[in-house]
Design a binder for these strands. Structure first.
Lengths: 328, 328
DNA sequence: CTGAAAGCGCTTACAG
DNA sequence: CTGAAAGCGCTTACAG
């Protein structure tokens, strides 16, 4: 690999001059520019980022970490992040933790090592103490959930209110036996959605009878529905903390001859593509995914540029998408 | 942020000694180690990766680039890559190109800047010249498709043979009017799957009547099926270059009252999760996804360590998953 | 407009 | 076992 020294030698100038041409600032004559560009061309030179960023003390790169990056729910979120980042000259690198905290730590380490300027976490799988220690590592923004117990910048819908609305929809349709399949309880938004479910039941004088814990996978929705079907008393409605588990539940119910929505009404959360494909199409909470991603990135970049957003928790609107999984 | 100098000062030693303790090699007394570790602890010191890797001339980081990272098809591939990488002490950062070549170039630039040691491309969207010039940038492995026109290391199934088998399955079931929805033709595996389709038709004396081009999205499968349904002559079977398009086609056909598989048999490619959820469940080609990812990473790391795999194109086995979308 | 020099934060031969 | 020094590849005040 050619270095800046090689280019300087080939162009007959100093490395300082090459650098000026390279960074396109500092004065130089057209003739100097020509010579340097020629040398760069000839040597097929590409500046070494490690040297450059070590000197500049910034990388113009940010990391976005996901628990399961291939969940199509994140598709538009990533798009929003990338569009916003590239508009400001930042590159996004993506991290996938597979729901494993050591993997999350791997990416946090990249930030600690200063190989990126900031980080966005979607669904921090962390205790209050852990999440607070993350803040000390560097600039962080939380996406898809709010962490209210600290000075933690975040962008998300109001998960409590959205869950409340989803369950209220079932109650309005006449249901009084409503089960909930929650997400892993070390994830903030799981707890928030459970909270919204409970609030809706309580305000309507409905007893909480079934709360089962899944892991957001289709398979867990399937097997937990299997369990519910074996009970003597069965729910007439189900609110699942995400679409995949809702869809798993529908498939399992149908496999057991239970009619959806006639014998079991189902509401999901996220509005992934599959929600429209399952039969019957799933009623669910839709989030402004693209905007969540873009907004989280905007907030992070604002922090990096020393002008942090005065709004700590950015709350975006959600909508209830009514399809056929709850009946008319 | 504390630097190695701060630690050296606090511990009353030289930076060289701190570095020795840090990298856990070079000799030092237990007492020295203790002092240094204490200082590191006290200052909450974390070595700067830019400095370290600039000096060491390697980053132990590799980039894996995907055209659409949230396509669930890539889920297991990523897992395979990450497991293999972390077994060798490498960190994987993921890139998403959204099918845009400038985005692909962004990630290639990270390699050029030496901020990563190597790169894996899945579905290179490149002409022969472009893809060859990529090789000059640094160590590259191609995953999910083979590029036969150059010295390009790759890991994939035999896409031609797999497509041939998928179409042969339809022919064995008695179909002679078989349409194909192909992928974007600048993607190698699209061309390979088209090739397999054509070979199967030719060897069975069947005329090629409908080849439409999609973009791998559900939506494109839907709209192209819509077009097919408006033709005077209609196919009795369809081979789509991926599952998403196959599923889109099924949904559209059903929406027009066409019975699947009775009036239209459909075969897809990839065996994504959705393939089992659509009604009827989709017959499709399954690839050893995890193994593709792990094998591609193994090959890349072997290159980085100066012991390149003597096998240029690693060909892995596929299977035809027979479900209900083609009838009995 | 240009170059020599310093320095970003590390690691590692070289001496002692 | 330890430190002083060189150097990885850049950029940028400082002089001229």
């Amino acid at each position: 690999m050619a270095t800046i020294k090689d280019v300087a030698r080939a162009a007959g100038v100093s490395t300082a001059t090459v650098s000026r041409v390279l960074t396109d600032k500092g004065p130089y004559t057209p003739e100097t520019q020509r010579k340097v560009k020629e040398a760069i061309e000839k040597l097929n030179y590409q500046p070494n980022g490690l040297g450059r960023y070590l000197r500049k003390q910034e990388t113009r790169t940010v990391i976005a970490v996901f628990p399961d990056i291939t969940n199509p729910f994140f598709s538009q979120i990533i798009r929003g992040m990338e569009d916003e980042a590239s508009a400001h000259g930042y590159t996004v690198i993506l991290g996938n933790t597979d729901n494993r905290s050591e993997r999350q730590n791997n990416y946090l380490k990249l930030l600690e090592e200063r190989r990126a300027d900031g980080i966005i976490l979607t669904l921090a799988r962390s205790s209050v103490e852990e999440i607070d220690s993350i803040r000390k590592i560097g600039p962080v923004v939380l996406a898809c959930e709010h962490f209210k117990e600290g000075e933690f910048s975040s962008v998300a819908i109001d998960n409590v209110a959205a869950a409340y609305e989803a369950v209220s929809h079932l109650i309005r349709l006449g249901h009084t036996h409503i089960a909930h399949i929650e997400g892993p309880s070390d994830i903030i938004l799981s707890r928030d959605r459970l909270l919204g479910y409970r609030r809706a039941l309580r305000e309507n004088g409905i007893k909480e009878e079934w709360v089962l814990q899944g892991d957001f996978s289709l398979e867990s929705g399937r097997s937990l529905m299997g369990k519910l079907l074996q009970e003597k008393r069965r729910p007439t409605a189900l609110f699942a903390a995400n679409d995949k588990m809702a869809i798993g539940a529908i498939l399992e119910a149908k496999a057991h001859g239970v009619k959806v929505p006639k014998e079991l009404a189902v509401v999901g959360f996220d509005d992934i593509e599959m929600a429209q494909i399952v039969d019957p199409p799933l009623t669910t909470i839709a989030q402004p995914k693209y905007q969540i991603g873009a907004e989280a990135m905007r907030k992070l970049i604002a922090m990096l540029q020393g002008q942090p957003d005065p709004v700590l928790h950015t709350i975006l609107p959600y909508t209830l998408e009514i399809r056929q999984s709850c009946g008319a």
